[in-house]
Nucleic acid binder design. Structure first.
Lengths: 194, 194, 194, 194
DNA sequence: GATGAATGAGTTTTCATTCAT
DNA sequence: CATGAATGAAAACTCATTCAT
């Protein structure tokens, strides 16, 4: 514990600084020196923890994506029904996007920008598996439309990113009512109408 | 007349080069010199047409956004029914996002990034009015859910951006069938179920 | 008169613009395009009248220096006594420096800066001859100290440049009284005390 | 301790390089790259010590002005008589202007040019106080003419700048004799004739 | 492990000058 | 004679990265 003395605190401070600065200014408008300053370390110290700037942002991306999925699935159990499971996951994701604003903004920027390299992008996607499994089950049970997972994601999950964004730009306020409306819209777009 | 008037061709070449390079590398990773080279002009020439890099990208954004909305509403008529009107607009938007890939990618990056300044962002939003009017009519007629326009946009229009993106990254192919499915998902998420 | 149609007006406008802009910003901080704009001509037009930027400023210098000496000696006559002659010249010079502020500031900058090339500098000095002649006469008559003309200039004429400068920077106001004091100081520093 | 502290040597080398190059070419004709080269550092290094080019020249100005006044008053004591004090200060100033040519030329350029910003200009003036005090004493004692300090400066001190300049341009040589003549001219222009 | 000084390579932007009309 | 568009060359400045300590 004393041997590999690389302080996890410094590493984390660097990651959090990266998120905040990239959110405010964009990746390439964020100098390493500024990240170092906000994390209260020397610029040179960054290179003890990360190979280079690209590596720093890649790793930050993977880490934030992990937090996102960990949060999303924390209360979900595979024993839940499809409806219940979807609602549980959806509401956790909504929670995350509306409360962990910095993380959510960061992901939105990474996902719509060439700033992350392909391997990291792929790495980040992995963790959504439980949702895909749930949808597979739902399709098998005739509850979820038998369409591409990407379509399901586009219509049931991705809109939350847009709502998070416009809320953050001050255009709307997402309260409990809007959230319920959003959930109904999400659910009705992927469930099979009987 | 061809040589000594500030040529609209050069201006346009610069805008197209900006779109392509920003799509590939991101705003700040795109040097003015590269834009100039791709547009076959000297770097100094850019400054005859645009005040600075920020101005260039702002104007490019507004121009692309205009093309987008112009395309979206070209075949729509206010005399159409709500259902028909929405379908017409939606399909034009889908068309644009799937065919005018460069433009669509550029808008996605601008909209999820701090690269555009606020005034330009606001300028870009203006042109969606016909869709908002249609929705207002739909709400009055009891056809469209009486929820915030942002929610309607999030669920019926914005998913197309996500689909465009994943198609471009090679994850899926959006054919006629997927498009129809997408439209059904969009419509079912905003129409009132009777 | 119609043949060599180079308009003297344009040439003069360019020279006046040069004086004003160089006074405000310095030679190298004054772009040709700005000079052209202030003179209401195209940048290319400057090159019809002057070889290049250095030539423009050299010629401007010589022209302003000529105005200065022409003004200085306009009312002086060689028939005047040494005392009278000096007073007449000194007061004309003072007049010029305090009233033709732009010209005087321009000369101060040229004379204390490497912006003028040597040939033009020498050319500009030529026209002071009548003053040197007067001093020679004064020395011969035992009225003026038998010291270098440069010393005489340094103590009797050059202080006016300093006074002009500080008045222009708002530090003092040179009224009739100060002027008389200045003249007495000038005269007492070069005349022989008996 | 030599290598990793921001080295005062580098800062000083930059200041000296600035003086020399500005003297030769003028402020705006002196590129940062040339200053860096002469100081044997990278252009980027300049920005570790100075905010920008204007800051570099402002600070150089203040520093040179300080050297000037420090030198001027080094041997002066307030216990000296007015005559003696003035002679001491005057000769130190003459010494400085004729020996520290680079510094003196630099000040002449700064003082006759818009290259220094107003705050720095004011900062540079501060240090002349002992001379002003001496003059106040001289006026009280009926030894010095009761005229503006600017006039006293214009006639007793400023001529040295002109003499330094023309000597440097090779027009004259200021030897001991000329210096004595100059001093007499200076003194006779400000002392009260009895 | 941690640092701050240092820098080479690159960025945006400017500008004196030219040239086709 | 006059022009405005165009540009190559160079300016100020930045920044990811390294290195001696």
């Amino acid at each position: 514990m004393a041997a590999l003395q690389k302080s996890i605190d410094k590493r984390n401070a660097l990651i959090e600084a990266t998120i905040e600065l990239v959110n405010n200014d964009g990746f390439h408008a964020t100098p390493m020196s500024k990240i170092a300053k906000m994390a209260n370390v020397s610029p040179a110290t960054i290179y003890l923890y990360f190979d280079n700037k690209q590596d720093l942002v890649n790793i930050t991306y993977i880490e934030v994506k992990s937090r996102y999925t960990a949060y999303a699935f924390e209360t979900y159990r595979e024993t839940m029904s499809v409806e219940e499971g979807f609602e549980v996951i959806w509401k956790r994701i909504a929670d995350f996007k509306l409360k962990e604003v910095a993380d959510a903004m960061f992901l939105a920027q990474c996902d719509n920008t060439p700033m992350i390299d392909e391997p990291s992008r792929r790495e980040g996607i992995k963790h959504l598996q439980p949702l895909l499994d749930l949808w597979a089950r739902g399709k098998a049970e005739g509850i979820i439309k038998p369409i591409s997972d990407y379509l399901l994601y586009a219509y049931s999950i991705n809109p939350l990113s847009f709502l998070m964004l416009v809320e953050n730009r001050g255009a709307i306020k997402i309260g409990p009512q809007e959230l319920e409306e959003a959930f109904q819209a999400a659910w009705s777009s992927i469930k099979i109408n009987r």
